[in-house]
């Protein structure tokens, strides 16, 4: 954390990348009887969208004097994800970890991240993934930006650095918009934005040796009240979890393609009103 003071002395861009450690959602299995994710069925990884945010930050480092700090809130083992962020080009990582942060909804998560960002001091840009694959809300980026009263550009599909600042293309309403940020701000990234690089060997070695500072509630106490974070600080509460019945349709399966099958399918299309191009 002391490296932050060093950053201030030289005029370089400071980028904070928000990272979350998530279960591998493509592999994770779900226990329908208990209504919970079987976390043992898959490993954890850095939220894939956050890797696009990190890649964008690391690319900026290549064209400008910039430093990249990965910030993650999670259990102590999430240190692994910060080390991965360093292996992929971040300069340092900070872990926000405290039992008091557990059970945070998006509001409580945002307020905790905001406290840490204030504690870090000045910054130019905050980058985040457009959403996480486990929570799938996409709310934390905008909530953090709103709490910090900085502008935001959500769902960035491509990014360019120029004399004015950062220019991003986004898909919103029914069009493509170009948004240019000329001061500090928050950007959230889609997967289209770039292709995240793989960790390099030298960076991996560096990451292995790096100490990851752990910031707890006490450390953030000037900016964060215990009652605002974790389960207690969360205004939204999951009251119940329902496992929906597995969807089945009483479909008709044809074991081979024959005239009867074709006629029946065509009949069904016409019955559904799909007649454009369908000759009766």
């Amino acid at each position: 954390m002391f490296s932050i003071i060093l950053h201030k002395e030289v005029l370089i861009l400071r980028i904070i990348v928000l990272i979350k450690e998530v279960p591998d959602m493509e592999k994770v299995r779900f226990d329908s009887e208990k209504g919970v994710v079987d976390r043992k069925s898959a490993g954890t990884e850095v939220n894939p969208f956050d890797l696009n945010a990190l890649e964008a930050a690391v690319q900026m480092k290549e064209i400008a004097d910039a430093s990249v700090t990965a910030l993650c809130m999670g259990p102590p083992q999430a240190e692994k994800s910060l080390k991965e962020a360093i292996a992929r080009g971040a300069d340092e990582g900070i872990l926000l970890s405290d039992a008091a942060f557990g059970g945070s909804d998006t509001w409580a998560t945002s307020i905790t991240l905001v406290a840490a960002i204030k504690k870090m001091g000045d910054y130019d840009y905050i980058f985040a993934g457009e959403k996480t694959v486990d929570g799938d809300t996409g709310q934390v980026g905008s909530e953090v930006a709103s709490m910090l009263k900085i502008p935001q550009i959500c769902f960035v599909e491509s990014l360019e650095m120029n004399k004015e600042g950062l220019t991003a293309m986004v898909a919103v309403w029914d069009g493509i918009y170009r948004k240019t940020l000329t001061g500090k701000g928050m950007l959230t990234f889609t997967k289209a934005a770039n292709t995240p690089r793989l960790p390099g060997i030298r960076e991996k070695m560096k990451a292995r040796k790096m100490e990851i500072p752990v910031w707890d509630l006490r450390f953030l106490s000037e900016y964060l009240n215990e009652t605002d974070t974790g389960f207690k600080g969360s205004p939204t509460k999951v009251k119940k979890v329902v496992v929906p019945p597995v969807l089945h349709r009483k479909g008709k399966i044809f074991r081979e393609i024959n005239d009867a099958c074709l006629r029946e399918v065509k009949g069904a299309l016409i019955a559904r009103g799909i007649t454009e191009g369908v000759k009766k």
């Binding site: 809300t137 909530e143 959500c154 769902f155």
Partner: peptide, 22 residues
Amino acid sequence: TPFGRSLAPRLAAILETGLTAD
């Protein structure tokens, strides 16, 4: 929608209230 999903959290944070997505 993409606009609603970026507006709603911005608004919820100003109103200091909870928000459920999607």
